[in-house]
Design a protein around this nucleic acid. Structure first.
Lengths: 227, 227
DNA sequence: GGCCTTCTCCACCCCGAGGTGGAGGCGGTC
DNA sequence: GACCGCCTCCACCTCGGGGTGGAGAAGGCC
């Protein structure tokens, strides 16, 4: 039973020493079975597809294909393997890209061996696992935009518009001219101008760029207002 | 020495049973010292200010003042205490609000006792600590906006602008008129018009609303371009 | 020296944006 | 019925946005 529930793992790193170290660490855990290795992203995709692991420990900087591209490739191929990115650096750029590509974990290479093993187990269960500094970065990113107050104000003001006015405001925010708006909404030019004027008055602005800002402020963070 | 390094903790929850449970769990850890308790947010602020704990375990739903408001109040007062929010629910709204108010941790109440103790220790060291499901939500939020491709395109295009042109583009995106831009950058009106024209050409747009979109697209997610 | 880019500014033009003051129809409320 | 809000559209006006085609100065590159 315990045998059947072993976590199947593939280790990917271009440095033989790092691979050896990881094998040592993870080989010691009796609930983990290393079912494959690769030394670059290209091989990694092949190995993962064949070995069907539960979890992949994936280095980022590698020759031929880096770990992020490999992760994306695995997603594209529908592989169910959960990827833990293992790297030395944790810039916002890397973290966000990795998570967008579908990585379930992001560990720094200075993570203690016991924590690496714990991460493999947790990720195998479908939970995410990030190094503390990565979590901090993620918090910074997630809380940065959407300070909330500006968004709420924008949404409150937009709520005062009539349905038609909101449509027009959205079109204005897209950068359309009055004529284009009239066309796309099947209205007369004069009608559009009237609505635009009402929008200006209700939002208390004097030009369309400011309308654009309100609309985009209100749209950000809030998931899918209307279909 | 070990005595001196004890983590000073305050426990805040309106349910006496929950408080008792937490005290039991954390009292068992010899490197944690509970230096105060409170049963609502209002009292919590007082207790924390007097007891000067390193860490606060803070319930959200409480009478008089909820945990989020209390956390904000502590931040406003400049308290160095790190707050771990402890709650039953983990909606995007709650998680983001808590983190914005400066919470260092966000744990669900079904967290195992040992993990609660571990969280207190980690947070005391300045690291964040989130429950797995909270981490998942955060990842969803952080990766949602910024699908990346649009942002990268916007940034790439903006990078082709000269320094001056970028300044002008930013001003345009703020909704300023040419005259206002000329004023704020100490330029002639004609100069501004020239720059605006160049910006249009390089961004391949025909009006300022579209410039605004590029600038805001590029700005989102990216941290503080230039001071 | 030439050649490039960047920044500054000019004149001239046209049209769309934005403001003012209307109108009529349509649906709901008192 | 009278009233009100929303949607539709009109005429008229002004001014700023946006396009064209310049110019001169400063700095970097070959």
């Amino acid at each position: 039973m315990a045998e059947l529930n072993k976590v199947r793992l593939v280790v990917v790193d271009d440095d033989p020493l790092v691979r050896a170290g990881l094998l040592m660490i993870l080989g010691g855990a009796e609930d983990v079975e290393v079912v494959g290795e690769a030394s670059d992203g290209h091989d990694a995709v092949d190995v993962v597809v064949r070995a069907r692991p539960d979890v992949v420990l994936m280095d980022i900087r590698m020759p031929r294909m880096d770990g992020l591209a490999a992760t994306r490739r695995l997603r594209d191929r529908g592989s169910p393997a959960r990827v833990i990115v293992l790297t030395t650096f944790d810039t916002d750029e890397l973290v966000l890209t990795a998570l967008r590509e579908g990585a379930a974990g992001f560990l720094l290479k200075d993570t203690r061996p016991a924590d690496i093993v714990a991460a493999v187990r947790r990720v195998a269960l479908g939970e995410p696992m990030l190094s503390p500094s990565v979590t901090s970065r993620l918090i910074a990113v997630a809380t940065r935009q959407g300070d909330g107050s500006r968004q709420r104000k924008a949404r409150a003001l937009l709520a005062r518009l009539t349905e038609r006015e909101r449509e027009v405001a959205r079109a204005v925010a897209e950068g359309l001219s009055n004529a284009e708006i009239a066309d796309s909404l099947h209205l007369g030019l004069a009608t559009v101008k009237t609505h635009v004027g009402s929008v200006f008055a209700k939002l208390e602005v004097t030009n369309r760029v400011q309308v654009s800002r309100y609309v985009h402020d209100a749209a950000s963070v809030s998931e899918a207002d209307e279909a």
